[in-house]
Protein backbone atom coordinates (compact mmCIF):
# COMPACT_ATOMS: atom_id res chain seq x y z
CA UNK A 1 0.00 0.00 0.00
CA UNK A 2 3.03 2.30 0.43
CA UNK A 3 3.59 3.02 -3.23
CA UNK A 4 0.12 4.45 -4.01
CA UNK A 5 0.29 6.83 -1.02
CA UNK A 6 3.71 8.08 -2.04
CA UNK A 7 2.61 8.44 -5.64
CA UNK A 8 -0.43 10.42 -4.51
CA UNK A 9 1.72 12.72 -2.34
CA UNK A 10 4.17 13.31 -5.20
CA UNK A 11 1.25 14.07 -7.53
CA UNK A 12 -0.18 16.57 -5.04
CA UNK A 13 3.29 18.14 -4.64
CA UNK A 14 3.47 18.61 -8.39
CA UNK A 15 -0.01 20.15 -8.52
CA UNK A 16 0.85 22.50 -5.64
CA UNK A 17 4.11 23.57 -7.27
CA UNK A 18 2.37 24.33 -10.57
CA UNK A 19 -0.32 26.28 -8.73
CA UNK A 20 2.30 28.36 -6.90
CA UNK A 21 3.98 29.14 -10.21
CA UNK A 22 0.70 30.25 -11.79
CA UNK A 23 -0.75 32.27 -8.90
CA UNK A 24 -0.48 36.08 -9.05
CA UNK A 25 -1.88 36.62 -5.55
CA UNK A 26 1.15 36.29 -3.28
CA UNK A 27 -0.92 35.65 -0.12
CA UNK A 28 -2.48 32.63 -1.78
CA UNK A 29 0.93 31.60 -3.10
CA UNK A 30 2.47 31.59 0.38
CA UNK A 31 -0.43 29.50 1.69
CA UNK A 32 0.22 27.06 -1.16
CA UNK A 33 3.92 26.85 -0.25
CA UNK A 34 2.80 25.98 3.29
CA UNK A 35 0.73 23.14 1.83
CA UNK A 36 3.79 22.12 -0.21
CA UNK A 37 5.84 21.91 2.99
CA UNK A 38 3.14 19.90 4.75
CA UNK A 39 2.98 17.42 1.87
CA UNK A 40 6.77 17.06 1.92
CA UNK A 41 6.57 16.45 5.67
CA UNK A 42 4.12 13.64 4.95
CA UNK A 43 6.56 12.16 2.44
CA UNK A 44 9.40 12.35 5.00
CA UNK A 45 7.26 10.44 7.50
CA UNK A 46 6.67 7.74 4.90
CA UNK A 47 10.44 7.55 4.37
CA UNK A 48 10.95 7.10 8.16
CA UNK A 49 12.70 10.46 8.48
CA UNK A 50 10.46 11.70 11.28
CA UNK A 51 13.06 14.24 12.49
CA UNK A 52 13.11 15.93 9.11
CA UNK A 53 9.32 15.82 8.95
CA UNK A 54 9.05 17.65 12.31
CA UNK A 55 11.39 20.34 11.09
CA UNK A 56 9.71 20.70 7.71
CA UNK A 57 6.24 20.97 9.26
CA UNK A 58 7.26 23.45 11.95
CA UNK A 59 9.65 25.63 9.93
CA UNK A 60 8.41 25.23 6.37
CA UNK A 61 4.68 25.18 6.97
CA UNK A 62 4.65 27.22 10.17
CA UNK A 63 7.30 29.83 10.82
CA UNK A 64 8.42 30.49 7.23
CA UNK A 65 4.81 31.01 6.07
CA UNK A 66 4.16 33.48 8.88
CA UNK A 67 7.38 35.33 8.02
CA UNK A 68 6.48 35.58 4.34
CA UNK A 69 2.97 36.80 5.29
CA UNK A 70 4.62 39.39 7.54
CA UNK A 71 6.85 40.50 4.67
CA UNK A 72 3.84 40.70 2.33
CA UNK A 73 1.96 42.93 4.77
CA UNK A 74 4.88 45.39 4.45
CA UNK A 75 5.09 45.22 0.66
CA UNK A 76 2.42 44.51 -1.93
CA UNK A 77 0.49 41.28 -2.14
CA UNK A 78 0.21 41.08 -5.93
CA UNK A 79 2.91 40.06 -8.29
CA UNK A 80 3.69 42.61 -10.98
CA UNK A 81 2.58 41.51 -14.44
CA UNK A 82 5.46 40.50 -16.65
CA UNK A 83 5.72 39.06 -20.10
CA UNK A 84 6.67 35.40 -20.24
CA UNK A 85 10.45 35.17 -20.48
CA UNK A 86 12.17 32.42 -22.39
CA UNK A 87 15.71 32.61 -20.97
CA UNK A 88 14.83 31.94 -17.26
CA UNK A 89 12.61 29.06 -18.33
CA UNK A 90 15.47 27.50 -20.30
CA UNK A 91 17.85 27.87 -17.34
CA UNK A 92 15.34 26.26 -14.95
CA UNK A 93 14.58 23.45 -17.38
CA UNK A 94 18.28 22.72 -17.92
CA UNK A 95 19.01 22.74 -14.18
CA UNK A 96 16.09 20.40 -13.56
CA UNK A 97 17.24 18.06 -16.30
CA UNK A 98 20.79 18.05 -14.87
CA UNK A 99 19.44 17.21 -11.40
CA UNK A 100 17.33 14.36 -12.74
CA UNK A 101 20.33 13.11 -14.74
CA UNK A 102 22.35 13.18 -11.49
CA UNK A 103 19.82 11.02 -9.65
CA UNK A 104 20.31 8.24 -12.22
CA UNK A 105 23.65 7.41 -10.57
CA UNK A 106 22.21 7.32 -7.06
CA UNK A 107 21.31 4.03 -5.36
CA UNK A 108 17.66 3.06 -5.51
CA UNK A 109 15.39 4.16 -2.67
CA UNK A 110 15.52 1.58 0.13
CA UNK A 111 18.47 -0.30 -1.42
CA UNK A 112 20.12 -2.14 1.48
CA UNK A 113 23.36 -2.66 -0.43
CA UNK A 114 23.91 1.08 -0.97
CA UNK A 115 27.33 2.43 0.04
CA UNK A 116 26.04 4.55 2.94
CA UNK A 117 24.55 1.47 4.60
CA UNK A 118 27.71 -0.61 4.37
CA UNK A 119 30.44 1.93 5.16
CA UNK A 120 29.91 4.04 8.29
CA UNK A 121 26.35 3.27 9.33
CA UNK A 122 27.17 -0.08 11.03
CA UNK A 123 29.80 1.70 13.18
CA UNK A 124 27.31 4.36 14.18
CA UNK A 125 24.64 1.79 15.05
CA UNK A 126 27.09 -0.23 17.12
CA UNK A 127 28.46 2.87 18.88
CA UNK A 128 24.96 4.08 19.63
CA UNK A 129 24.10 0.73 21.19
CA UNK A 130 27.28 0.99 23.31
CA UNK A 131 26.15 4.41 24.57
CA UNK A 132 22.65 3.02 25.31
CA UNK A 133 21.01 5.68 23.15
CA UNK A 134 18.39 4.07 20.91
CA UNK A 135 18.11 7.06 18.56
CA UNK A 136 21.16 6.83 16.31
CA UNK A 137 20.47 10.29 14.86
CA UNK A 138 21.02 11.87 18.27
CA UNK A 139 24.29 9.99 18.80
CA UNK A 140 25.62 10.97 15.40
CA UNK A 141 24.57 14.62 15.69
CA UNK A 142 25.57 15.33 19.26
CA UNK A 143 28.45 12.97 19.90
CA UNK A 144 30.11 11.71 16.69
CA UNK A 145 29.68 15.04 14.93
CA UNK A 146 29.68 17.36 17.93
CA UNK A 147 31.86 19.97 16.23
CA UNK A 148 29.67 19.88 13.15
CA UNK A 149 26.46 20.48 15.06
CA UNK A 150 28.16 23.15 17.19
CA UNK A 151 28.94 24.86 13.91
CA UNK A 152 25.28 24.57 12.90
CA UNK A 153 24.16 26.28 16.10
CA UNK A 154 26.65 29.01 15.29
CA UNK A 155 25.14 29.33 11.82
CA UNK A 156 21.70 29.89 13.40
CA UNK A 157 23.28 32.43 15.75
CA UNK A 158 24.98 34.24 12.86
CA UNK A 159 21.79 34.24 10.78
CA UNK A 160 19.86 35.82 13.65
CA UNK A 161 22.64 38.41 14.05
CA UNK A 162 22.26 39.26 10.38
CA UNK A 163 18.50 39.71 10.71
CA UNK A 164 19.02 41.88 13.79
CA UNK A 165 21.50 44.08 11.94
CA UNK A 166 19.03 44.60 9.10
CA UNK A 167 15.72 44.91 10.93
CA UNK A 168 16.49 45.96 14.49
CA UNK A 169 14.79 49.05 15.79
CA UNK A 170 15.17 50.22 19.34
CA UNK A 171 12.05 51.41 21.15
CA UNK A 172 13.20 55.02 20.73
CA UNK A 173 13.26 54.76 16.94
CA UNK A 174 9.81 53.18 16.83
CA UNK A 175 8.04 55.92 18.77
Amino acid sequence: MDVPIEALLFFLLLVTALTVARLRDLYAASMMTAIFSLLSAGLFVLMDAVDVAFTEAAVGAGVATVLSLGALSLTGSREAKKRAQVFPFVVVALTGAALIYGTLDMPHYGDASAVIHSHLAPDFIEGSAELEIPNVVTTVLASYRGYDTFGESFVVFTAVLGVILMLYRSKKDAS
Binding site: F54, T55, G62, V63, N135, T138, A142
Partner: peptide
Protein backbone atom coordinates in the same frame (compact mmCIF):
# COMPACT_ATOMS: atom_id res chain seq x y z
CA UNK B 1 12.80 12.15 24.57
CA UNK B 2 15.37 12.89 21.86
CA UNK B 3 17.64 10.07 23.05
CA UNK B 4 14.93 7.48 22.61
CA UNK B 5 12.69 8.66 19.82
CA UNK B 6 12.85 11.00 16.87
CA UNK B 7 13.69 14.59 17.58
CA UNK B 8 16.14 16.60 19.58
CA UNK B 9 17.11 20.17 20.32
CA UNK B 10 16.52 21.63 16.87
CA UNK B 11 13.09 20.05 16.39
CA UNK B 12 12.02 20.98 19.92
CA UNK B 13 13.23 24.53 19.35
CA UNK B 14 11.24 25.07 16.17
CA UNK B 15 8.10 23.54 17.70
CA UNK B 16 8.48 25.83 20.72
CA UNK B 17 8.98 28.85 18.47
CA UNK B 18 6.00 27.83 16.31
CA UNK B 19 3.87 27.93 19.47
CA UNK B 20 4.98 31.47 20.25
CA UNK B 21 4.47 32.50 16.63
CA UNK B 22 0.92 31.10 16.68
Amino acid sequence: HGDFGPGGGFQAGVIFAAGIVL
